[in-house]
Amino acid sequence: MSAAIADGRVMAGRYLRHVVRAPEEIVIYFSLPIMFVLVFGYVFGSGMSVPGGGGYREFLIPGVFVMTMLYGIGATATGIAVDVGRGVLDRFRSMPMARSALITGRVTADLARALLETSVLVVCGLLVGWRWHLGLGNVLAAIGLLLLLRLSLSCVGVALGLSTPNADTVSMIVFPLAFPLSAVSNVFVAPELMPGWLGTVSEWNPISATTTALRDLFGNPGLGSDSWPAEHALLLAVAWPVALIAVFGPLSVRLYRRLGQ
């Protein structure tokens, strides 16, 4: 067991070294949320009003945190797909290392990346006028929720990476998957403003749940909706990721084992 943890750590170190040696990848992942902050915060934001009152950028930033976690699926899935497509996985699998290390290492590295990404975004947020209002304990809780979400999305990414034939396909799948999830949510617009069924989807979207929970924890302006998902955002922000982990964790392990058949 301790060997498995050690191997996972070595493997996490490998993925983090990739970030250092090929930083363009993480720069691309950063550019997206920062662009969202600029485009929505300044271009469209001036024409938007928050239903419950308050500044649009304060309303927007928690959602951008969440979206950044979501788009991390791409990095996870690509990293895994690249490994599977190359002979290096054969070497790993022919070595006396823990076979779980590839997955645990990837997930650990993802969480470390998520922390880095969150820190950068906090700085960006502060620069454009976003603040937290309810104390450091709440901030830490919010970061905890983000990491939990990232963990679950990392499991989704691993499963995706293991089930696609190559890394190029991954990027073609991830964007069409992630974009609607982020657009049909309460990140930019209140679900009440969408057509009925779309609003319902948006309210129950895991992205919305974590976003609402973050707004509450930071004391940022929210939507003030009294629907069930909005009232129980914190519960959903925990339940959704746990459910995703319960489904995609074992699925990833199954897919990984199947490589040997």
Binding site: R14, R17, R86, V88, D90, M95
Partner: peptide, 26 residues
């Protein structure tokens, strides 16, 4: 195992590769 599809990590340096595999050999 070695062979046809040179099974090394392309992003890492030669040395980092060998250190990585050494660490995974405990």
């Amino acid at each position: 195992l070695a062979g046809q599809y040179a099974a090394v990590d392309e992003l890492l340096s030669g040395r980092q590769n060998l250190v990585l595999f050494g660490r995974l050999h405990h």
